[in-house]
């Protein structure tokens, strides 16, 4: 019996690592997509954090968020620079908000709303950090376009996530494993 739960826990860790790797993969996909505006991001790498809401336990969810930040930092080589603060702050804020929205508002909020909330939290924290670290008060000038672009892309990502959990057979299988 002990053996079984042990191997089960190991499988869970593997699953978190897989989702974290999936986030890394999506950020390379994102990198390849041409963008009309320089600071525009779709935030594809946040998809695992959105779909993980329904299939991960609390601790696993936190682990996924941390692994996403560390992995991206290592791939881009920015892990020991200021950049990691932006990515850490943004990811932790959005993970927290998305988690709370999903846990307590699932009945009224779809993944689209979850994605909007997460993106706004992430972008506000990143603007605050850019004011503190890089641009000073001038960070407020980039706030409106930054927030608008973030809002639009988060809606697109939310619709995408919603469609994914509704049509994916992988997701349905994972969901059944846990029930």
């Amino acid at each position: 019996m002990i053996r079984h739960s042990e191997s089960n826990r190991y499988a869970r860790i593997e699953f978190v690592a897989l989702l974290a790797a999936f986030a890394l993969f999506l950020s390379t996909v994102e990198y390849l997509i041409p963008k009309p505006v320089p600071f525009m991001r779709i935030g594809l790498a946040n998809l695992p954090l959105i779909i993980g809401l329904g299939i991960l336990k609390d601790r696993e969810y936190i682990m996924l968020a941390i692994l996403k930040v560390l992995g991206q930092g290592l791939v881009t080589g920015t892990i020991f620079s200021y950049i990691i603060l932006f990515s850490l702050g943004g990811t932790i804020a959005s993970a927290l908000v998305m988690y709370l929205l999903y846990r307590f508002g699932k009945r009224w909020i779809s993944l689209v709303g979850v994605s909007i909330g997460g993106a706004m939290a992430s972008n506000c924290v990143q603007l605050l950090l850019s004011q503190l670290i890089l641009f000073g008060a001038a960070a407020r000038l980039i706030a409106p376009p930054f927030l608008i672009v973030g809002l639009i892309t988060s809606i697109i990502l939310g619709i995408f996530a919603q469609q994914f959990v509704q049509t994916s057979s992988w997701y349905r299988a994972e969901l059944e494993k846990r029930s």
Binding site: I13, E14, V16, A17, L18, A20, A21, F22, L24, F25, T28, M63, I66, L67, L70, G71, L74
Partner: peptide, 20 residues
């Protein structure tokens, strides 16, 4: 432990990029 987890993440990352 976190270091091992990151290694595992990169192991899967390589599997994903080759499978893709």
């Amino acid at each position: 432990r976190l270091g091992k987890l990151v290694s595992l993440q990169f192991y899967y990352f390589e599997r994903i990029t080759t499978s893709w």
